[in-house]
Design a binder for these strands. Structure first.
Lengths: 352, 352
DNA sequence: TCTCTTTGCACAATCGATAGTGCAAATACT
DNA sequence: AGTATTTGCACTATCGATTGTGCAAAGAGA
């Protein structure tokens, strides 16, 4: 085995070594050789040489010629959050199983960055783009459309192409009901004791709030507007909202519906400044699941969005030739307090 | 603005539109035009047309010609964990600021998958590879070396190229000492009451354990071997180890050093099966930081690895022409219980 | 043996950008 | 005016693969 060759082997190298033409080598190595009526023996020889010289196709050349790169993009708001990183993990498995290469990037929930990032991915001729949690899905759509790039929305719906989202209304209902039922019948919750914090002017927040209000009116017979505090998705703004509330009221609400784990982090920041006892009587529901959050010192009810099903559906829809711009809703799951779910990590073999 | 053109504009299109040759267009748009003595007016015209027709260079063609793709790879064990997803987030910011495109993939801590994944990235002619937490860094090294790809190790060191890692010995010491000091002088910890769970036969685990034992011997004057339970990185194996311990001893150790947040998830699974009181008296130290874990019902002391500094150092070393295979150690930070740190998320603007 | 078909492969154009080279026109200089 | 420079750009090969087309040699059929 003579190593040390600086440059990678190409079909031209193998062509010389095998005595066949580059096109023959190409056909053998990309699987189209039967169609081209290449002799089995020729193919075998070339495969052997390819093995010996560790040939791997140059994807840029392939992509240039075929205008398909084998790259599949996932556009996320951010990486460092269990929801989105689980999304990345599951996405990667899907893409790799199709023999393609995942490329996951984040665009900070900024409409312009979303469009520019999409454009960058397009310049690499990615084959498909999954747009997850975009602030402006239709803006990204335009960029993709113009480049003839197939794309789909996840988590937040757009209007031009199919979307696969969590059933936020139903999830909001489930979570609200679970929060209310967490209180014993002899100390029931009053309507003004259940607050929702977080979220902003996006579809997911709207639907969750709609579910929240519906159940609240049903079960608690009341729903004061003051109980909805949309703080955006910034942890710090969320913290400020809690500080303001606490300042005003001298206490926290008995029950809390937190719009996302990112808002929950804002709550943590508030917690850091206040003693344990402040929280001892409260119940929190959070739309998103995080294993550590599930074990906090007060009951935390969580909603786990069914990432696997959402992505499975998205990949399925992606396979259709010209899918209608339908919104597919996937029912999320209610997770009771103190629950440690298995995740993608569990698929790993662990040696040593 | 006449839209609707299916295919993207190329330098040939602009060449026709501008009346210049493709090479002139290319030079103007890639910035080498002054060197080529192109008239300012010609350049202006071409730039204007490029703007109008929304030209963006085809990176595959560029890459094929120049054998540089503008892609920079990060190889992770897994995505869905705060440590690695923060790594991805910070990495992405660095790469984007250099005008390149990040490509983050995971290889499940499996040596063969690590090598194959590196090979895949190489087939896309990535410019650099950051190998993070690889089980077999030197195996990946061989693949990169053979392809002439510049690379560096992060988190776990290799022997052939530079590595930037957390100072695990010092971190292990800091964490152990903090755990011990968490106990009041009148109820001090005995050597056999402090256990370490998690980790395996890797450099990071070894160093953390070395730090653990050194401090334990110093402060507690004893260090029984039984107190080290290496369970690997699987949450489930970790849970089993705790179950076994509990079965045997009828209780948990008073103090715990958990090797990583992934092992901590195994502890969560154990917690799910046991009532609150089981943990009320204990102190846990975890090597890794997770904001939610920091607020669990018992004191959790955490180590935050300094991801920003590690990556900053890695990118700095990467710039050197032929860096020596040194191991650079970055001191991690001790995080006291109930601490919610700001993260990369805080850089986001939040509108609405 | 001679035509007809099938087999097996080589040739050459192409994808979109880059960079070395060469050459006419414009300008400078004597 | 005549030569020497400089300016401004076009030409062309190249990166590594894909694919439509063409053609010689081998085999089949009469």
């Amino acid at each position: 085995m003579k190593n040390g060759m600086r440059k990678k082997a190409t079909i031209y190298d193998l062509s010389v070594l095998s005595g066949s033409s580059p096109s023959t080598v190409s056909a053998v190595l990309n699987g189209t050789w039967r169609k081209r009526r290449i002799k089995e023996a020729t193919a075998a020889l070339i495969r052997e040489l390819a093995e010996k010289y560790q040939y791997t196709a140059n994807r840029q050349a392939q992509g240039l010629r075929s205008s398909r790169s084998g790259l599949v993009g996932l556009l996320l708001p951010v990486h460092d959050n269990r929801y989105f990183s689980s999304m990345a993990q599951t996405f990667e498995a899907h893409v790799r199983s199709k023999g393609q290469c995942p490329i996951v990037v984040s665009a900070s929930r900024d409409p312009q960055e979303e469009r520019e990032t999409a454009a960058t991915l397009i310049s690499y001729s990615i084959d498909e783009l999954f747009i997850c949690g975009a602030t402006d899905p239709d803006g990204v759509h335009e960029v993709c459309e113009k480049a003839g790039l197939k794309h789909i929305n996840i988590d937040l719906p757009g209007s031009k192409v199919p979307s696969v989202i969590s059933d936020n209304y139903e999830g909001g209902r489930m979570l609200t009901e679970a929060i209310i039922r967490q209180f014993p019948a002899d100390k029931p919750l009053a309507p003004e004791e259940l607050y929702l914090f977080g979220g902003r002017n996006d579809h997911a927040s709207h639907e969750r709030i709609r579910g929240f209000r519906a159940v609240k009116r049903d079960l608690l017979a009341g729903d004061p507007d003051i109980c909805i505090q949309t703080t955006g998705y910034s942890p710090n703004n969320t913290r400020l909202a809690f500080e303001a509330f606490y300042e005003r009221e001298g206490r926290l609400p008995r029950a809390l519906f937190v719009n996302s784990s990112i808002n929950f982090e804002g709550f943590l920041r508030f917690m850091a400044g206040h003693p344990h006892e402040t929280f001892s009587e409260m119940v929190v529901g959070c739309y998103d699941y995080d294993p550590f959050a599930s074990f906090l010192p007060f009951p935390v009810i969580m909603i786990r969005q069914d990432i696997e099903s959402m992505l499975a559906k998205a990949f399925e829809v992606m396979k259709e030739p010209r899918p209608a711009p339908t919104v597919h809703m996937i029912r999320p799951e209610l997770i009771k307090p103190r629950t440690a779910l298995a995740g993608p990590l569990d698929a790993l073999k662990d040696i040593d």
